[in-house]
Design a protein around this nucleic acid. Sequence first.
DNA 1: GTGATGATTTAA
DNA 2: TAAATCATCACT
Length: 183
Amino acid sequence: MKPLTQAFFNQQTTNVAKDLIGKVLIHETPIGPVGGIINETEAYTQEDPACHAYLGKKTNRNTPMFAEPGTIYIYFIYGMYYCLNIVTEEKNRGCAVLIRSIIPTIGLSTIKQNRPKAVTKNLSNGPSKLMQALAIPASYNQEQLINHPKLFIYDNHQSLTISQTPRIGIKKGVDLLWRYVGN
DNA sequence: GTGATGATTTAA
DNA sequence: TAAATCATCACT
């Protein structure tokens, strides 16, 4: 298993979103590694009205989206949740992929401690659930995933059947089939 | 300064 | 179906 390179993220956002399905996300915590297989992602681009960086408009929040591909973008939402994205395409484009779900496989006992009230099926099947399950701190925002000391995405050469659907929880851009689900 | 809103989750 | 809960952003 080798970590993904910056070149992997310097491609069309929809392709990156699709290619991330089946990859393995791992967080090295003080207690030990936790992680799992990415099985749901969504693409967001500058041309897309649902994107935080729509029309290339920079704000304080979306600044990481304009950094180099492979940059970690973590945003705070609904007053209590965090979501993990990886920046895609060339620097300054304002594109990213939201990681929506992983199948937990590594450090399961720690993951269960991190999500004490969740049944097994719901441990990390949502963008904010996986943040809690893997105990990923918001301070990783704007850091580089490439050569990151604690957070990794590996190619496990796992191939899943991928289906496309509209994205979840948005009101604009609902016609785009930019959500990718692996089975 | 102010108000509406949100790439969600949980419980009921 | 609705509540929780607040940073962010545009300014009816």
